[in-house]
């Protein structure tokens, strides 16, 4: 357990706890292989299916990496992620007629602005993070439906150039060596940057104290407001990236494009060993959590469990993981949630 408050903080135990998450991921892989061996499901181990898993993991993982910062800072989750994803997708498509790069830039700026707003209100005025981000989620939803009059928009209906549309399509479809998709590359880059920022920079260390005890952080002279604001901005930024990828995948701007990503990301974060009380966990663990979710979803789909029943399983797993996590922390006397 990586924790400043434990008596011994070894990097060994750190590695072990992260390895545990990947151990579970491997177990799920083995489960899939076993199911294939018994003939319950076909071609789980095929390269194409592995690619499917990785692609699905990439989108959830990108959102989860950003949201980890919010969780780490002790603010649970950012519920405005779904409409941030939808909204920035709309904006990018709308702006495509001015070229691909300007569209990308405007979408990212809008995403960052939403994050800044969240971070400012929550960091400065200590508004309840859940209710505030929910409110922002609804406002953004209303804005999408007001501006675009309840309509979905397609990249080729705004008179945008062929090249811009092709580039936009490539956000999700570009594959290096016909194998590794761009979202996966972005995920890997984001995980490396995230892990580095969280463990090796003063921002990360300060964020850990902020998440562990806001009062202590404040009294020791840390600019907690700035840290919290930055973590919400990072969350909105990754949500924007994932939103653009999802919009590129579906080739349509729709208000429901990001639906469900908030809960999937929180589940990945929790399974990845980041506690919701804040200040504990690693980005590598969160990546493992996303992997577990991806493999589990894939197995459930192959077995023939419908999308909605998958929700049921995910909800149950989420509650069980959080429950056991809280109980084991309490038994160790480390509970401060």
């Amino acid at each position: 357990m990586s924790d400043l408050r434990t008596v011994r903080t070894g990097s060994f135990s750190n590695i072990m706890s992260t390895a545990g998450v990947y151990g579970i991921a491997v177990l799920f892989l083995a489960l899939g292989a076993l199911l294939q061996a018994t003939g319950a499901i076909g071609n789980f181990l095929s390269p194409q299916n592995m690619l499917n898993i990785v692609d699905a993991v990439a989108l959830v993982g990108i959102v989860a990496v950003g949201m980890s910062f919010v969780t780490y800072s002790g603010h649970f989750a950012d519920m405005s992620v779904p409409t941030t994803m939808g909204f920035t997708g709309y904006i990018c498509i709308e702006m495509l007629r001015y070229g691909f790069l300007p569209a990308l830039l405007v979408a990212l700026v809008v995403g960052v602005l939403i994050g800044l707003l969240n971070g400012f209100v929550i960091g400065k005025f200590r508004a309840n993070p859940i209710i505030w981000t929910l409110a922002v989620n609804y406002v953004t939803m209303g804005m999408i439906r007001l501006i675009w009059a309840n309509k979905q928009i397609y990249p080729d209906m705004r008179g945008s150039g062929e090249k811009a549309i092709a580039l936009f399509d490539a956000i999700y479809r570009l594959r290096f060596f016909h194998l590794i998709g761009l979202p996966l590359v972005m995920l890997v880059v984001l995980v490396i940057i995230g892990q580095f920022v969280l463990t090796r920079t003063s921002f990360g260390v300060k964020l850990k104290l902020t998440g562990s005890s806001l009062r202590a952080a404040k009294l020791s002279g840390i600019a907690v407001e700035r840290g919290i604001m930055l973590s919400f901005v990072l969350c909105a930024l990754t949500a924007t990236i994932a939103g653009l990828a999802v919009t590129s995948l579906s080739r349509v701007g729709a208000w429901y494009n990001g639906a469900g990503y908030d809960f999937k990301a929180v589940t990945a974060i929790v399974i990845g060993g980041m506690t919701l009380a804040g200040g504990r966990g690693t980005i590598l663990g969160v990546l493992g959590g996303s992997l577990i979710i991806g493999i589990l979803n894939n197995i459930m789909t192959l077995v023939g469990i419908g999308t909605f029943s998958q929700d049921m399983v995910r909800g149950a797993i989420f509650i069980i993981v959080v429950g056991t996590n809280a109980l084991s922390l309490r038994r160790l006397g480390r509970d401060d949630a």
Binding site: F76, I130, F263, V266, V270, L276, A277, G306, F308, S309, Q310, D311, M312, V313, R314, G315, A316, F318, I319, V322, G323, A326, L327, R330, D335, A337
Partner: peptide
Amino acid sequence: KAKINSFIVTLGTMTLLQGSIYQ
């Protein structure tokens, strides 16, 4: 009893219930 944050718990039951409703 388990002392989990209520937002987290009810977010979980919300998702679980949505699944059950469709099921």
